[in-house]
Design a protein around this nucleic acid. Structure first.
Length: 829
DNA sequence: GTCATGG
DNA sequence: CCATGACAACGCCCT
DNA sequence: AGGGCG
């Protein structure tokens, strides 16, 4: 078949705007992804091989996540000039629908030796190739391999390879890379304009006047780390600048809100090229020949250094009337990248790499850059706050210090010998040593001049005796000092002067101490929230377990869905958690609801996210890692796992060998619930005699459970014997309707008193647990009075529990305040 | 329900 | 991509 | 040892 014959045969070029493919496009290795809203929405992935675009239809599109293996159906080759096509294929034509140019760029095969048309064709014929994409969205190695060449349609898989560009959480913009439009906008016939970015479609964006924003700050962290939830940027050493534009008005503001429009006029001018209203955040730097930021040159800007002045922007906080503070960071950066025109000279996008902080940090060290900034990929922007969502990790450790004096110069040195330094500690200035190196002549003079008006007689800080001769100055000027560590008396070791910090107030100069990285990684409260919850030491659960298959039917007869279970536990968490916390959970999972099969799962080793607490327990068959349900998020995680019924141990950590309640399980077989209540009232009577508290709940079915909270001082064996003893008394009083017979067939018409439910690792359905029974019943606390009056246990269910709680509250709330001493009770018998 | 695997 | 299958407890009593 | 039971 002649080249492109199949392509041409399917099309009428007088009726479709698609190119006819008569103009070969040179020898480049281009690739393109077109999003095509045809009869089925899909993506077309095309690689240029010679004078054709070898093409695959990829229903799910192309991911940055190596775990995603997406089907790619090989389709006919397209002409090279098709790579520029974006528009509408009219109805009635082949592939009718809207085409959006989703990504484009160049690629190179894995091994450059094989980088010939013939070699690539050969690999495609053989059904396997790997290549590196350099697109506007897609980056890194991808592999494409055939899995099935039977039938007329070849089935291939396209998958991201594991490399530094792999990213499980990366979400790509769905806008065109040439027009900035969405599929809908193209379909409506909109033309590419600068207004194309429809910020109003983003859920977290909200309309707002242009805000005044002070920069969000980063916390110093001790060491680099790898984490898929984080991204990493170069830490630039310059001035933190907020840039704004509204109509014709453009501003550059320092962190203290001072204007820098004049000083950085080249940048200020260039803001005009960005055709939007915006507030963006970034760092102004002067780059030296090696591309490193040169702080001193930034301070003494001259014509020469002006040419090396750049503004690295890394955040977008407001755009065209919408506040973006709450939009996830990576999305803000994506938008930032979109609004920056390609022809900027002075303003540059500060790119990041995902996940691989350690490698990135090594590169920072090799390049002798100051360090890196780690940011939580999904974090919000907190203006003016120092947050653990942003961390700075430094290769060396610069420290700012306040100048409090200087010593006289010696020999040929002019101006001064050394600067005396101080740092704020707990609100007071404290002497921090002196620095005598790192100045060039101009800086020496400049600082000297600036210090003259600040001269004072009294030293602003207490200093060692040997520095008494120094000239003191008022603590107004801040300097950046590089040093290697702290001496025992709080001075900097091997200090070098790196520049004045006119952008910082002396009050802000404090000793920076790195927080341990694990603290930041486990930190899940935001600054604002943290202030509110400072008192309560219990960890706040901000993890939000996803609910998968929300509409799966769990109770077909009642049409109760999985999401109803999830919602029930969401609502019940507060009252339920005290009965679950610290207790190993035997998970009874029922992913297919009441009709499907359930299975127990105790060991969750490696199966649950790391924020879920577990406890490792020795058992006969080795060691088992039990889940602990310590917070609402874990409860919801369990719900999503199909743990409809909750089965906590009768003991809690750390006393897993000592039960903290004894259970009396009244399990009826073919006997009326009235009789069960009668026996339970019998227990109530007995407990009154023994001065024991009475906590009873429905089982969720036809049984009742009586719990006796005990001091965790006795073994499971002793707990079980104790239960048996009391049940024997009941058995004597209700001989004709109770039984110790284990086999159900032999206890028909009786209530089984199951003391064996007391034991190590034994569980019962928790109070307030849903049960997989008709009507989605709930194991519900009841009072002795209710038992005497008579109740219908089926009335306690997923629908009625909120109302029940409103009416009677949590009847068991005092349970753990009334722990009984088994030994003392035995003496009464 | 999740994970791994194969077509 | 989709389909399919594997996998997911344990202690104790009784015979 | 294996099945039943919760």
């Amino acid at each position: 078949m002649a080249p492109l014959e199949k392509y041409k045969s399917k099309r009428h070029f007088d009726k479709t705007p698609e190119p006819a493919g008569d103009q070969p496009d040179g020898d480049e290795r281009r690739f393109v992804v077109q999003k095509h809203d045809a009869s089925r929405l899909h993506f077309d992935f095309r690689l240029q091989v010679g004078d054709k675009l070898v093409s695959w239809a990829v229903p799910k599109g192309i991911s940055a996540n190596p775990a995603h293996k997406h089907l790619a159906v090989k389709v006919e080759d397209h002409p090279v000039d098709y790579q520029h096509f974006e528009g509408i294929i009219p109805k009635g034509n082949y592939g009718a629908g809207t085409v959006l140019l989703w990504d484009s760029g160049t690629y190179r095969p894995e091994d450059s030796v094989e980088n010939t048309v013939v070699a690539i064709d050969e690999k495609i014929r053989k059904g396997s190739l790997k290549f590196f994409l350099e697109g506007q969205k897609l980056k890194g190695f991808y592999s494409l391999y055939r899995i099935d060449d039977k039938g007329d349609q070849e089935q291939w898989i396209i998958a991201k390879s594991k490399d530094n560009y792999a990213n499980a959480s990366r979400r790509f913009s769905q806008r065109s890379v040439i027009s900035g439009l969405t599929l809908d906008e193209i379909a409506r016939g909109e033309k590419s304009t600068e207004k194309a970015l429809s910020v109003d479609k983003i859920a977290e964006a909200r309309p707002a006047a242009m805000p005044h924003i002070s920069p969000m700050l980063a916390t110093l962290a001790a060491a680099p780390f790898d984490d898929p939830d984080w991204i990493f940027e170069i830490k630039w050493d310059g001035y933190r600048i907020i840039a704004t534009r509204k109509g014709d008005e453009r501003k550059l503001l320092s962190r203290n809100g001072n204007p820098y429009d004049e000083k950085f006029r080249t940048i200020h001018e260039e803001l005009q090229k960005i055709g939007h209203d915006f507030v963006m955040d970034g760092e102004v730097v002067v780059l030296d020949q090696e591309g490193k930021s040169d702080f001193q040159a930034l301070q003494h800007l001259d014509a020469q250094s002006m040419g090396r002045l750049y503004y690295y922007v890394f955040d977008l906080l407001w755009l065209n009337g919408y506040l973006l503070q709450d939009v996830p960071l990576v999305q803000r950066k994506e938008m930032l990248l979109q609004i920056l025109p390609k022809n900027l000279q002075r303003i540059r996008y500060c790119d990041h790499i995902p996940e691989k902080g350690k490698i990135f940090f090594k590169q920072m060290q090799q390049l002798q850059l100051e360090g890196m900034i780690a940011k939580r990929a999904e974090s919000k922007y907190y203006p003016g706050k120092r947050s653990n969502a942003w961390l700075k990790i430094k290769t060396a450790r610069p420290q700012e210090a306040v100048i409090v004096g200087y010593t006289a110069p010696k020999g040929s040195r002019t101006a001064f010998g050394a600067l005396l330094l101080a740092i704020n500690e707990q609100g007071n200035l404290r002497y921090a040593g002196k620095v005598g190196t790192g100045f060039d002549e101009a800086t020496l003079q400049d600082i000297y001049k600036k210090l003259q008006p600040l001269k004072t007689k009294e030293p602003p800080v207490k200093v060692p005796a040997k520095e008494r001769q120094a000239q003191w100055v008022k603590p107004r000027l801040a300097a950046e000092i590089q040093f290697t560590g702290w001496t025992r008396d709080g001075a900097m070791r091997h200090p070098t002067f790196r520049g004045l910090r006119t952008d910082k107030k002396p009050d802000e100069i404090t000793r920076e101490t790195a927080i341990p990285v694990h603290q930041a990684l486990s930190e899940n409260t935001q600054p604002a929230e943290r202030a509110a919850t400072k008192q309560t030491r219990r960890r706040k659960a901000t993890h939000n377990p996803k609910l998968s298959n929300p509409d799966k039917v769990f109770w077909p007869d009642e049409n109760i869905l999985k999401k109803n279970v999830y919602h029930y536990y969401d609502q019940m968490a507060e009252v339920l958690l005290p009965y679950l916390i610290d207790r190993p959970q035997s998970l009874l999972r029922s992913p297919h609801g009441v009709a499907g099969e359930s299975f127990f799962q105790k060991d969750v080793k490696g199966l649950v996210p790391k924020w879920i607490e577990t406890v490792t327990v020795e058992s006969s068959s080795g060691t088992t890692e039990y889940l602990l349900c310590q917070d609402k998020a874990t409860l919801l995680f369990m719900a999503n796992w199909g743990s409809v019924e909750l089965n906590p141990w009768n003991a809690s950590v750390p006393n897993l060998d000592q039960p903290d309640y004894v259970v009396f399980d009244l399990d009826p077989v073919e006997i009326s619930f009235e009789e069960v209540m009668r026996v339970a009232v019998g227990f109530h009577q007995l407990f009154e005699e023994l001065k024991l508290p009475f906590y009873c709940k429905t089982s969720g079915s036809r049984g009742l459970h009586i719990y006796l909270p005990v001091k965790p001082q006795y073994t499971h064996e002793q707990g079980q014997q104790f239960a048996r003893l009391l049940e024997t008394i009941i058995h004597d009083r209700f001989r004709e309707i109770t039984s110790f017979e284990r086999s159900p067939s032999k206890r028909k018409g009786k209530i089984y008193l199951d003391y064996l439910q007391n034991g190590r690792g034994k569980t019962m359905a928790s109070v307030y647990s849903l049960r997989l029974k008709p009507g989605a019943t709930v194991s519900t606390p009841v009072t002795a009075d209710e038992l005497k009056k008579g109740i219908d246990p089926s009335g306690f269910n997923i629908h009625s529990m909120q109302q029940r709680l409103k009416e009677v509250g949590d009847l068991w709330r005092d349970m753990f305040n009334t722990r009984v001493d088994i030994g003392e009770t035995l003496k009464k018998l």
